[in-house]
């Protein structure tokens, strides 16, 4: 199947659902890459800074791939350096809206946000939408190291106990709620599964994520999870009335203007070459 085939076969609603998913992947990976890049300096170990820098490069690379898909398949052009969209239209996970306060925020994004994006990408693997299916394996291979990094730090901070563990739990609690919102209300993406573009719907992916987190964390209840052998959910369920399907989030704010300025090189417009 060529890349253009799917475009012709999808009805408008399915096509829109696919488009918003790709935009959300692109926007969230851009913001995630920004935060990883920011923590090249200031992490608790030099090696962790190098790892963060490397993960930033990979997230920016993935963003570029998704932007290429948006251009080819949907005629939507997102160029991070020339992007003029206001913060309130970004489809990025709310946990990434502001500068991270500490290393615990980075580890939480690494564990929860990064893994959520990988789960969504994995649902497109070996499915009918070629543009994502073709890049999924390589992308997920890179993401395996992101997960290993997050898991290593979570283990360490849990063992440290005290303030590091408390900070981690606070960060994870926020990341888990914001990322759960990203997966949307149950059934919102049925069209994508029915059309054969994804093999697993977002509700099942969310349950898979929460189950993995509960398995990793010694005390899942401390980060706002509830459940057990039958599966894990949020102890305080989300209310979906205000969910914005175009942005896949409940929080109606957006990334800090200062972060977008840095991503866009606003202070260096005079030096731009194109």
């Amino acid at each position: 199947m060529s890349e253009g085939d799917v475009k012709l076969q999808l009805d408008d609603a399915t096509r829109l659902a696919l488009q918003t998913t790709v935009i959300a992947l692109s926007d969230t990976k851009l913001l995630l890459g920004y935060h990883y890049g920011e923590w090249t300096f200031g992490p608790p170990a030099i090696e962790a800074g190098i790892a963060a820098c490397s993960m930033a490069q990979e997230e920016f690379g993935h963003t570029r791939l998704f932007n290429r898909i948006l251009k080819r398949e949907f005629d939507i052009e997102i160029d991070p350096l020339n992007d003029t969209r206001p913060p309130e239209v970004f489809a990025s996970i709310a946990f990434l809206d502001r500068a991270f306060e500490n290393w615990a925020d980075l580890v939480a994004a690494n564990l929860v946000v990064d893994q959520a994006l990988s789960l969504v990408v994995s649902a497109f693997a070996d499915q009918q939408f070629g543009p994502i299916a073709r890049i999924a394996d390589k992308m997920l291979l890179e993401e395996r190291f992101h997960y290993a990094h997050a898991e290593g730090w979570v283990r360490l901070m849990e063992e440290q106990g005290g303030a590091p563990r408390e900070a981690l739990h606070q960060s994870l609690s926020r990341a888990i709620r914001d990322t759960s919102a990203f997966f949307g209300p149950p059934g919102h993406d049925t069209a994508l599964v029915t059309a054969g573009l994804k093999h697993t719907d977002d509700d099942a992916l969310r349950q898979r994520l929460l189950g993995r987190l509960a398995k990793l964390l010694p005390e899942p209840e401390a980060v706002g999870l509830a459940g057990g052998d039958q599966g894990w959910t949020l102890a305080e369920p989300l209310s979906w009335e205000d969910w914005d399907s175009a942005r896949r989030r409940l929080d109606h704010g957006g990334p800090d203007a200062a972060i977008l300025d840095e991503l866009r090189g606003t202070k260096n417009v005079a030096f731009k070459t194109a």
Binding site: I50, A51, A148, H149, E151, G152, W153, L156
Partner: peptide
């Protein structure tokens, strides 16, 4: 620990 050493 070894797991982070592998990533690094």
């Amino acid at each position: 620990h070894i797991d982070l050493a592998r990533v690094y």
